[in-house]
Simulated assay, not measured.
Amino acid sequence: MQPIGKFLIFAGALLILFGLFLSFSSKLPLGRLPGDIIIKKGNFAFYFPLATSILLSIILTVIMYFLNKR
């Protein structure tokens, strides 16, 4: 049962980090980066966070690389 315990600890740590991220996300510029596409016409608004998606993809790729390297 040791692998299950390690998984639960890792999942709990991820939930804590995600909760902290959500708490402080209003202070981060994510979602308002240059390169994000915003189209507003009348009462229609289209928002596509292109630059934010690329940045998060790069960060997650680096994290996954270091986690799988061991």
Rank of each mutant, 00 (worst) to 15 (best):
M1Q: 12
M1E: 14
Q2K: 13
Q2C: 01
Q2T: 14
P3D: 08
P3M: 03
P3V: 03
P3I: 10
G5K: 15
G5D: 15
G5A: 11
L8H: 13
L8S: 14
I9H: 09
A13Q: 15
A13P: 10
A13M: 13
L14F: 14
L14M: 14
L14S: 14
L14Y: 15
L15C: 07
L15D: 06
L15W: 08
L15A: 13
L17Q: 08
G19H: 05
L20V: 04
F21E: 07
L22D: 04
L22F: 12
L22V: 08
S23P: 01
S23R: 12
F24K: 09
S25E: 05
S25D: 06
L28C: 02
P29R: 06
P29N: 09
P29Q: 06
R32T: 12
L33D: 04
L33T: 04
G35E: 15
G35T: 04
G35C: 14
G35M: 09
D36W: 02
D36I: 00
I37R: 05
I37A: 13
I39N: 08
K40L: 00
G42N: 04
N43Q: 15
N43P: 13
F44Y: 06
A45H: 07
A45S: 14
F46D: 03
F46T: 12
Y47A: 07
Y47G: 07
F48S: 07
P49S: 05
P49N: 06
L50Y: 04
L50D: 02
A51W: 03
S53H: 05
S53C: 00
S53V: 01
S53T: 02
I54F: 09
L56C: 11
S57V: 07
I59M: 15
I59N: 11
I59S: 11
L60D: 00
L60H: 02
T61G: 10
V62S: 06
V62H: 07
I63M: 13
M64H: 06
M64W: 09
Y65A: 13
L67Q: 11
L67K: 11
L67E: 13
L67D: 09
N68T: 11
K69W: 03
